[in-house]
Design a protein around this nucleic acid. Structure first.
Length: 294
DNA sequence: AGCCAGGCTAAGA
DNA sequence: TCTTAGCATGGC
């Protein structure tokens, strides 16, 4: 057996709170896994890392770890998180969510990986989404050794576009396979540049995403929020609709995405998407609690 | 063992 | 323009 490459370690000071458990498993990222000793393995900037908190610092380990600047960016270890907490509107439900998960941070993920991940996410569950994305990485991602195991990076657009149909379907993504292939082709051919979406105005980036197959309003907003730093993007999935219906207003008919977004901007301001993630996670955590036996 | 899931597309009104 | 059936899959 070949000797694994040596690992390098980084330690990064964290101002304010960072709740890795809530941040990594709240449905914004799909490639993290808990280790037996309470740490977490995943990818940052498509490089495998193991992360954990110790003495208020973020400890990071990996064969080719990303720079401290990339880690700070990924985990949003800057002023924007506290700015959101301080500037959040005085809403009772949001207040409960903020007090329950003050260290839940909105990640800054890779735009391309976020695009594909949320195309796969449509009409699926988190566990299934995670399994499908892992299978996709194994099918088309470049391998890299970490300790004794072989991990697979997230595939490039070119690699996904070149994947055979049978291999794509073999990941378990079902009817979404042509969507993923279509998106990969458009990106590979330069019809859309995922990295350009962050700099574009929200509404402009939103319209561009809607032109791609398998990307509707909800998925577009997830991409813009989790992958492109557009904090006003307000994804409305079944859980958000549920919670709006329970706690804010009950329209006669199913409100359009546009109407919900208008409501969210009025209610939560320019960081409505950040609020959305708190409400989404809080509502799902509460649902699991309520469903479990007392 | 069904139900449901971080929805989208296309067809029909 | 607004509704709605159909869609693949498998975790729970």
């Amino acid at each position: 057996m070949p000797t694994p490459p040596p690992n390098r370690r980084l330690s990064i000071r964290v101002r304010g709170r960072l709740d890795l458990e809530a941040t990594l498993y709240s449905g914004q990222a799909f490639r993290w896994r808990r280790t037996p000793d309470g740490r977490h393995r995943g990818f940052v900037a498509n490089r495998p890392v193991e992360v954990g908190m110790a003495d208020g610092r973020l400890e990071c380990r990996g064969p080719e770890p990303p720079s401290p600047a990339r880690l700070r960016s990924y985990f949003r270890l800057d002023a924007t998180h506290d700015a959101f907490l301080r500037g959040a509107p005085p809403d009772p439900l949001l207040g409960n969510a903020l007090r329950t998960f003050p260290g839940l941070r909105l990640l800054r993920q890779d735009p391309w990986e976020t695009m594909v991940s949320f195309v796969i996410s449509q009409n699926s569950h988190e566990a299934k989404i995670r399994a499908t994305i892992e299978a996709l990485c194994r099918a088309a991602g470049r391998p890299i050794a970490f300790d004794r195991q072989t991990l697979y990076r997230f595939p490039s657009a070119a690699a996904l576009a070149a994947l055979r149909a049978a291999a794509l379907r073999g990941t378990g993504m079902g009817y979404r396979a042509p969507y993923v292939r279509g998106v990969a082709r458009r990106v590979r051919d330069g019809a859309l540049d995922p990295d350009g979406l962050a700099a574009a105005p929200y509404s402009d980036a939103f319209r561009r995403l809607l032109e791609l197959p398998g990307i509707g309003e909800k998925v577009a907003d997830c991409i813009l929020l989790y992958g492109c730093g557009h904090l006003e993007a307000f994804p409305t999935d079944v859980w958000v609709r549920r919670l709006v219906h329970e706690s804010y207003y009950r329209p006669r008919r199913r409100p359009s995405h546009e109407r919900l977004r208008a409501f969210a901007w009025r209610k939560f301001g320019p960081s409505a998407g950040y609020a959305q993630h708190y409400l989404f996670h809080y509502r799902r955590a509460r649902g699991r609690l309520a469903a479990s036996p007392a």
